Amino acid sequence: MKMTLRTAVAAACLIGFAAEASALTWNVSVWGKRRAFTEHIHKLGDLLAEKTGGDFTLNISYGGLSKNRENLDGIEIGAFEMAQFCAGYHRDKNPTITVLELPFLGVATLDEEVAVARAVYEHPATQKDLARWNAKLLMTSPMPQYNLAGMGEPPAMLEDFEGMRVRATGGLGDAFRTVGATPTSVTATEAYGALESGVVDAVAFAQHAHLSFRTIDLAKWWTTNLNPGTVNCPVVVNIDAYESLSDEQRAALDSSIEESIAHYLANYGELLKKWESILAEKNVEKVVIADDQIAAFRAKAADPIRAEWIASMEAQGIPGQELYDLTQEVLKSCHEADEAMTPSGVKTAC
Rank of each mutant, 00 (worst) to 15 (best):
E112R: 01
K51N: 10
H123F: 04
F80Q: 08
D291K: 06
A266T: 14
P144K: 05
K136V: 11
N232M: 13
K2I: 13
A12L: 10
S255K: 02
W133P: 02
S212G: 15
N283P: 12
I97T: 05
L226R: 08
E243W: 05
P142M: 03
M143E: 06
Y324P: 10
H208D: 11
A23Q: 05
G106E: 14
A340G: 12
E50G: 09
G64R: 06
A302Q: 09
R250C: 03
Y89G: 08
K43W: 00
N238R: 06
K43I: 00
A10N: 13
F85T: 14
M82L: 10
W221L: 01
L100C: 08
R250S: 11
A340Y: 07
H40T: 08
R214W: 05
C233Y: 07
W31H: 13
I261K: 00
E196T: 10
G163N: 00
V116G: 05
C334N: 04
T342W: 09
E258N: 05
G345Y: 01
I294E: 00
I305G: 05
G170D: 02
N94R: 12
G152T: 00
L218E: 07
G180Y: 00
S260H: 04
L65Y: 09
D201G: 06
K2E: 15
E101M: 07
K67T: 14
A168S: 13
A49Y: 06
A117T: 12
G64I: 04
A337G: 03
G170T: 02
L137R: 01
G74R: 09
T7E: 12
L331A: 12
G54R: 11
E190S: 10
D292A: 12
A204L: 14
P95F: 11
A301N: 09
S197H: 03
M157E: 13
L211K: 07
D254H: 08
G106L: 07
T223L: 06
V116A: 03
T109A: 02
S333W: 02
N59S: 14
K33M: 06
R165V: 00
F213I: 02
L331F: 04
Y268W: 03
K286F: 03
R167M: 09
W222C: 04
M313G: 01
Y146T: 14
L211Y: 06
V330D: 00
M151I: 14
H40P: 08
H42Y: 13
G45E: 02
I261V: 15
Q84V: 11
N94T: 15
L148S: 09
L331I: 05
A125N: 04
M139N: 03
G78I: 08
W133Y: 04
S260N: 07
G345L: 08
N71E: 07
N68Q: 14
H123C: 11
S61G: 09
D292R: 10
A188H: 06
H42S: 14
R250G: 10
A79Q: 15
M151C: 13
A12Q: 02
F85D: 13
I305L: 09
